[in-house]
């Protein structure tokens, strides 16, 4: 069976076409293309501008995806789209496109939870059986484990997502958003070495990032006003690279900690990292050290699948479709709030 998936919950518009040849055989990625709405340095992306970007690019991407996949409309079994969670206007614009295709092509719709999309794609690509999942992106930070037909949330960020924290700091420093603010923070951090004292906010299985963001923003402001600042501990001059370094070391340690807690709780030693922030090498490294210490391992993906994409929506959607799940047109809404554990995962036991 073949499905097309449309994703646009944030500033990435993705279209993917996937094939599930037969039970037991791995899925085949027939095409997976994406176009990102990149804003100038120091600016974030606003919903209405993002929606406009998606509307402008979706037809082009769908056509291109079909050509790359070498499939015809007939071959497609269903049209999958991101129902949520995400930003309102961008989600809507993609949902409208999906509905249009559905009516035009006379194919059924499947609304997909964005987080579940990430998880299912992660499982498929890495082959991880039953890992604890750390889902980290600009819009989400959750620690998830599967149990009894649901992806249960064990821990999460209580205020803003870790990716959001990093992106906003990139804006503070006016770093380029191309290809992604988080990527540029990571590169800058590689040149840092002073570890500043930043608030570390882990509460049980949860964490929060607004405190550390506020602190690092203040430090950045101080540094701008007084570039000769020295670290009280080592006496070294502090640079913006040090700020990025300290921020990363601290927020990633927080993520690894809550992941480890969940692993101890469910008795697992496998971790799967999904979501855009999962591309970060330092995070993967730290998680790997923790997992190894527990006699386990970490699974990750490259940017094709880690960053928001259409193929994960197609994949998760097709899994659901195969169990008889569809989204009638009247119900093909989208929603900003859509918790991962609301989805009934019928396709797993």
């Amino acid at each position: 069976m073949i499905a097309i998936g449309l994703e646009g919950s944030a500033n990435k518009l993705g279209v993917g076409i996937i094939s599930h040849p037969s039970p037991g055989k791995p899925a085949k990625v027939l095409s997976n293309i994406r176009h990102t709405f990149v804003t100038p340095p120091g600016e974030g992306f606003l919903p209405k501008d993002t929606a406009k970007h998606h509307r402008t690019w979706v037809v082009r991407l769908v056509k291109q995806a079909m050509v790359e996949a070498g499939v015809s409309i007939n071959d497609i079994d269903c049209i999958c789209y991101t129902k949520g969670p995400g930003m309102g206007a961008p989600l809507q614009s993609v949902a409208v496109a999906a509905r249009m295709l559905s009516l035009l092509w006379q194919k059924e719709l499947v609304g997909v939870n964005h987080c579940v999309g990430h998880i299912e794609m992660g499982r498929e690509i890495t082959g991880a059986q039953n890992p604890v999942v750390l889902y980290v992106s600009g819009g989400n930070t959750q620690v998830i484990a599967y149990a009894e037909q649901r992806y249960r949330i064990f821990g999460e960020a209580l205020d803003i997502a870790v990716g959001n924290c990093l992106d906003r700091f990139a804006r503070t420093l006016e770093i380029s958003n191309d290809p992604a603010p988080g990527y540029n923070i990571e590169q800058l951090a590689k040149k840092g070495k002073v570890l500043l004292d930043l608030p570390y906010a882990v509460k049980g299985m949860d964490c929060s990032f607004s405190g550390i963001l506020a602190s690092i923003d203040i430090l950045a402001g101080d540094l701008k006003a007084n570039p000769d600042q020295r670290d009280p501990l080592t006496g070294e001059v502090i640079t913006t690279a040090d700020l990025c370094f300290s921020l990363q070391e601290t927020v990633y340690a927080m993520l690894v900690e809550i992941t480890e807690r969940a692993m101890a709780h469910v008795g697992s030693n496998q971790v799967l990292i999904v979501g855009g922030v999962g591309c970060n090498e330092r995070l993967q490294e730290m998680m790997g050290i923790m997992a190894k210490d527990r006699g386990g391992s970490v699974f990750g993906m490259d940017e094709r699948f880690a960053i928001d994409n259409g193929i994960m929506i197609a994949h998760a959607g097709l899994e659901a479709y195969k169990t008889g799940f569809t989204t009638p047109l009247e119900e093909s809404t989208c929603t900003q709030r859509f918790r991962t554990d609301e989805v009934f995962v019928r396709w797993r036991d």
Binding site: G86, I153, A161
Partner: peptide, 8 residues
């Protein structure tokens, strides 16, 4: 239930 949903 667990916590508020986060805005995507």
């Amino acid at each position: 239930g667990r916590k508020r949903s986060m805005i995507g």
